[in-house]
């Protein structure tokens, strides 16, 4: 019951984040974040489809989630290339991520579970990109207005999500746990992620 409630809240916050991203799009249509509503729409479709399938067909949509994860990681790594001044590192991260994805596709089952190597490299690289972004931001005078910085909030959301997700996923994968409370972690992390996105979309782009 509580898990279903957490999932519903997560989906609700995601839909709100998508609507906010569309509503405030005119404020950031000329910035590097202009394609984020498409990512939010895609995330909403995947999330709703996955929930519906789980509810009616009692099946997890791991293939769909794998496709979503690959696309969202590529999207975010390209976004890093756009916003970071030193382009070479995010370009290398993107290249290594694509290589890890190809490796996962050929060595792991697409429907069995989430692609492990793809997910691990993607998560670590998002954290690395967030670290580079915060380092870049703190070295400029723009750090004064970090509370109103759209990129800061999006990066904070990503940082919080993946810093929680990464150790959690590794622990749960290697331990045989049967406690419903474990299932609360991902929805709660998602709520934090999309919450930060909502704040970010409401900020001016510059």
């Amino acid at each position: 019951m509580i898990l279903e409630l957490a999932d519903s809240v997560r989906t609700g916050v995601l839909i709100i984040a998508f609507l906010v991203s569309v509503y405030y799009w005119k404020n950031y249509k000329n910035s590097a974040q202009k394609y984020f509503p498409f990512l939010m729409l895609f995330a909403t479709i995947v999330e709703v489809t996955g929930s519906v399938r789980l509810y009616y067909e009692k099946e997890t949509s791991n293939f769909l989630y794998n496709v979503y994860l690959i696309i969202s990681f590529v999207f975010l790594l390209i976004w890093f290339i756009t916003i970071l001044k030193r382009k070479i590192i995010p370009k290398i991260l993107l290249f290594v991520f694509l290589a890890a994805t190809v490796f996962s596709v050929f060595t792991e089952s697409a429907t069995g579970d989430l692609y492990f190597y793809m997910l691990m490299t993607g998560s670590v690289f998002i954290l690395a990109g967030a670290f580079l972004f915060f380092k870049q931001l703190i070295e400029t005078d723009a750090a004064v207005y970090f509370i109103k910085n759209q990129q800061f909030w999006i990066m904070s959301g990503l940082l919080v999500f993946y810093i929680g997700f990464l150790p959690f996923y590794l622990l749960v994968r290697n331990l045989d746990l049967h406690d419903y409370r474990i299932g609360l972690v991902i929805p709660l992390l998602n709520i934090l992620l999309y919450g930060c996105f909502i704040i970010g979309f409401k900020c001016p782009s510059k």
Binding site: G164, P167, V172, H178, D179, I182, L184, V185
Partner: peptide
């Protein structure tokens, strides 16, 4: 033991998130 482990994981993740923010 499993309850302790779950508590440890949840508590650890929460501490990590709060400390990060």
């Amino acid at each position: 033991q499993q309850i302790n482990l779950v508590f440890f994981i949840l508590f650890g993740i929460a501490i990590l998130l709060v400390a990060t923010m």
